[in-house]
Each structure stands twice: as C-alpha cells, then as structure tokens.
Simulated scan of single mutants.
Amino acid sequence: MQNQSPIIEVDELLIIAGNPNLRIFDVRTGPVAKSDYQKKHLENAVFVDLNSDLAAIGHPKNGGRHPLPKFENFIKTLGRLGINKDSRVVIYDDKNGANAAARFWWMLRAVGHNNVQVLNGGLQFAENQNYPLSSLDDSYPGTEYISDYEDWQLPQIRMVDVKKATQDSDAVIVDVREAPRYQGITEPIDLVAGHIPNAKNFPFIDNLDENGLFKSREALRNLYSELFEDYDKNKITFHCGSGVTACHSLLALDYAGFDIPNLYVGSWSEWSRNGL
C-alpha cells in the first residue's frame, strides 16, 4: 500500500464506508474533546485520546509535552482499538488534520502500517459534505496487532542531535509553528517564547488552501522543493511545540512525494525547558 495517497477525500470515504476492514478514528483534542465526540462524530468513528493513546505524558523537560509511548505499548493500543494489519485506517480531527490526526498517521506509518490516511478537511468539511454523523460511543472489536518491527521505523532526532544540527551548515531545522510563536512574540503554551537557534519557519498552515484543504501535490512540491534540493534528507528535521503539529507537515511532504524527514518529537516544549 506504499503508493496509496496519505490523504483521503470525503467522497472517497463515503464509497468505502461499508468496508468491514475500515477503521475510522476521531482524534480531536482539548478538555472537551471526548464530550464533543459524544455529541457528534462521523458515523462509526472511534475516539482516540492524544494524551493517553498517542503519548506517554511525563515531565516536558524530558521528551516534551507529547513524547511517544513505548513501541510495545502503542502496539497494544492498536489491538485494543480494533486495528490489525489488514485494517484500512482513516483518521480525522477538527483542525484540518493539524492536530492529532497527522500524529496518529505518523505513528502508524512508523510501526509499518501503510494503509492509513488522513481525511482532507477533517470533521467540519465532512459535515459540510453531508457525511453521516452519529452520537453513539462507537468501538471496534479488540484484536491483536502483530508488527514486523520492534521499534519505530520513521526517522527521529533527539535533543542532543538537534543541538549539533544548530551548528551544522549542512543541516536544517524546520519550525512549523505559527510565525508569532517562532518569532517569540507570543507563546500560549510553553514557558519560554522563541525558537531553536538557526531554525527556519515553515508554518504548517501553509500546507492548506483558503478552504482548509491540503494544497495540491504540485503546490506542495513547489513550496518545499527548495528546502529538499538544498539539503540531504537525513539532515532535515521538522518540529513544532510538542511533536504533534509537525506531523501535519510530514504528511504534506509525503503527499507531495518527498521522503519523510526527521521528526524531533520533543520539539520546543522540551528544548525550551533545557536552557539551550
């Protein structure tokens, strides 16, 4: 399934909605995410919690606000959610994929599950397209997920390596946060405002058009081509505030046909707490 687009359109999802192997997941976040899900979500969609299912929350100084869970724990989570190796997984959130949908996509790809897509436009666009909605607390039968691997397969980089990259002219660090956060004008979440030294700002919002949909492959290739032409892909690192929204840009890059570069999961939330 490597040639399958990482993004699925609402009309495409409607066509496959009756597929018994289909698994749809709602990964919106925030203090009222679960209650909002219970009020209204896409039919058959199961709620996934960023903090408990897609992260191992500890002290942000050690791994950031949303560090990855242990590989083996995530594999167990997949089985509990009803995902096996034959499942076709579709993920959405209420932030055009820029919240936890892309993070879940990255994690599934990182365990070798390639049959996974993010819904273009997310919940709002699907609702506008009259996709069937539900208020049931849906679930899928538990199963067992057997991975071919014992560790994450997509490239990651740790804080010590990021520090080296700040002093390496052959490396590039990409910050996908909004420009005011990158510039240190505002910081609504973390304790310190600013950015990692020598990081470039490519805001994730630029992956989307005026309708909140992903830009065309051609447009995204044009957006990122200079970055990828000038640097070895192994020396390109993307990050955000806590390793979640950065995955939106990794998704866009994969959609545009680029190799997926390094993800710094700890991101600004870890870096800024270590006085670097």
Rank of each mutant, 00 (worst) to 15 (best):
G63A: 11
M1A: 09
D151G: 13
Q124F: 13
A165Y: 13
D137P: 08
K200Y: 05
H59W: 13
E72G: 12
A199L: 03
C247M: 05
L251N: 07
N99W: 10
N222A: 14
G266D: 07
L253A: 12
K235G: 07
D259Y: 12
Y255A: 11
A171D: 02
D137C: 12
I8V: 15
N262C: 11
P67S: 08
I157P: 05
E210F: 10
D168A: 04
E12C: 13
H59N: 15
D168N: 12
G30K: 08
H239L: 04
D151F: 13
N3Q: 13
R109H: 05
L250G: 02
V244N: 03
I24M: 09
D151K: 15
H195M: 06
I57C: 10
S134P: 09
L119G: 06
L227G: 01
Y92G: 05
L251H: 09
E12I: 07
K61A: 15
D168T: 06
S135V: 00
E43V: 13
D161A: 12
A246Q: 04
I75M: 04
Y224Q: 07
P31S: 15
T237Y: 13
K95C: 02
I260W: 06
I146G: 13
G97P: 05
L81P: 07
R23D: 01
T237D: 01
R65M: 08
L263G: 04
I57V: 15
N130Q: 14
D86P: 00
R65I: 06
V176L: 01
T245F: 01
G112R: 04
G241R: 07
D209I: 04
H66F: 14
I189A: 02
E178C: 03
K34H: 13
L123Q: 08
P203I: 02
H59Y: 14
R80V: 03
H248P: 05
N234F: 08
F238K: 00
L68D: 04
